[in-house]
Each structure stands twice: as C-alpha cells, then as structure tokens.
C-alpha cells in the first residue's frame, strides 16, 4: 500500500473525530467538589473586621480590598483603598491580574457575605490563592468598627481592649468619633489605584 494512503487512513478518521466533537472549552478546575466543600467550611477564609482595620490603619501594602458590589453602591460608600469589581465582572480579563496573583491578600466584601462568598467560591475553584472574605461584610464592619458598642461595665478587660481598638480604628478610618471632643477626621479619599502585580501565569513566550 502506498504510504500516502496509509497516512490518509490514519489522519482522515482522526480529523473526522476532532471535527465532530465539540471543543473542550471547560476551564480546568483545580479543585474537586469535595475539596471545595471542605475548604469553604473552613473559618480561615474569613478575615475579621479587626484584622482588616488593623491592616488599613497600619497601611499594610499586602492588603487589597475588593468591593464586589455594584458600581453605584461602591460610589456611595466603600472602604479605604478598595477596588470595585462588581461580581458580574469578576471574570473579566482586565481584572484577572488582580484576583489571580500570589503577592497580595485579596479581601472580598459586599454588604453581607453572600456575594463575597460567591466571588470567593469562583476564584477558589479557578485555583486562585490569596482570596479571603471580610467576615460579616460591610454591615458587620459598621457595627464593629464604625459604631462599636461600648461593653457593659461588668465585661472582662479583653472586651474593653477590643472596644478601644475598634473605636480607635474607626476614628482613624473616618467614623464619627463618639465621646470625643476632637473634630472628626476627614476620611481620606479612597484611592482605587491598584498596584499592578505581574500575573503569575503567563503564556509561554515563543517565537522565532
């Protein structure tokens, strides 16, 4: 048999198969459903408001707050230094460098935790690391950091220490300070200029 016919006998059927089968467009998931379930039950995916407040006050450069609410809500109020990535745009190419990186600590937040949780789920499933959720969302943030409730006189000392921290942080972060006579500090205009971190996974370089 001619080699050309032999070749044809192999590549034509293979060509037919590949033409008939739909392309594999599934994103390769890095986690199985079981792993994801196990991870999402961990408390470690949450970051407490205190920790975020502490990082904000100390201007920790590794913190990257990501507001997953809509643009309108973001414009009305957002945490200092937060970037707005509405959940609907989470997978947009232009944000990939932000959510898929290994340097900063991303903290998703929404009003509650539902939307932030969704964002975390999606990014985690894509295999991205360093993504966290603000515990309790903005609502809890307001309760704890902006308007901390003064503990009862009978409370243990730690309660008071926490209250003092929250109040101090809240003041620093622009909440109206209660029980003080000093004029409220103006909240610094939140800058939404993210530091561009080199994307970890780059296409292989090539070319002649």
């Amino acid at each position: 048999m001619k080699p050309r016919i032999v070749l044809a006998a192999f590549i034509i059927p293979l060509g037919l198969i590949i033409a008939a089968i739909p392309q594999n467009t599934t994103v390769p998931y890095k986690l199985t459903a079981h792993q994801l379930l196990a991870e999402s039950n961990l408390r470690s995916k949450y970051v407490s408001p205190e920790q975020v407040a502490h990082m904000l006050v100390s201007k920790d450069p590794t913190l990257q707050l990501i507001d997953v609410r809509s643009q309108d809500e973001y414009d009305k109020y957002h945490l200092e230094g937060a970037v707005n990535i509405p959940i609907t745009d989470l997978l947009a190419e232009k944000y990939a460098y932000l959510i898929n990186q290994e340097v900063k600590m991303n903290v998703f937040y929404s009003n509650g935790t539902v939307v932030a949780n969704e964002a975390w789920m999606i990014t985690r499933q894509l295999g991205y690391n360093n993504n966290y959720i603000l515990e309790g969302g903005l609502n809890y943030w307001a309760e704890t950091i902006l308007n901390p409730i003064k503990p009862a006189n009978t409370s243990p000392n730690e309660e008071f220490a926490r209250y003092d921290f929250r109040k101090a942080a809240g003041t620093a972060l622009g909440a109206a300070p209660a029980e003080t006579l000093t004029a409220p500090e103006n909240s610094q205009p939140a800058t939404a200029i993210p530091i561009i971190v080199k994307p970890k996974k780059k296409k292989a370089a090539g070319g002649c």
């Binding site: 070749l7 044809a8 590549i11 034509i12 060509g15 590949i18 033409a19 008939a20 089968i21 392309q23």
Partner: peptide, 13 residues
C-alpha cells in the same frame, strides 16, 4: 478548530 483541521487534512492529501 476541529473542522478546520479536517479541511486542512483534505487539502493536504
């Protein structure tokens, strides 16, 4: 992509 590959195979043959 697959259909294109098939066409290219036929052209090449």
């Amino acid at each position: 992509d697959g259909l294109f590959a098939l066409l290219l195979i036929l052209v090449a043959l």
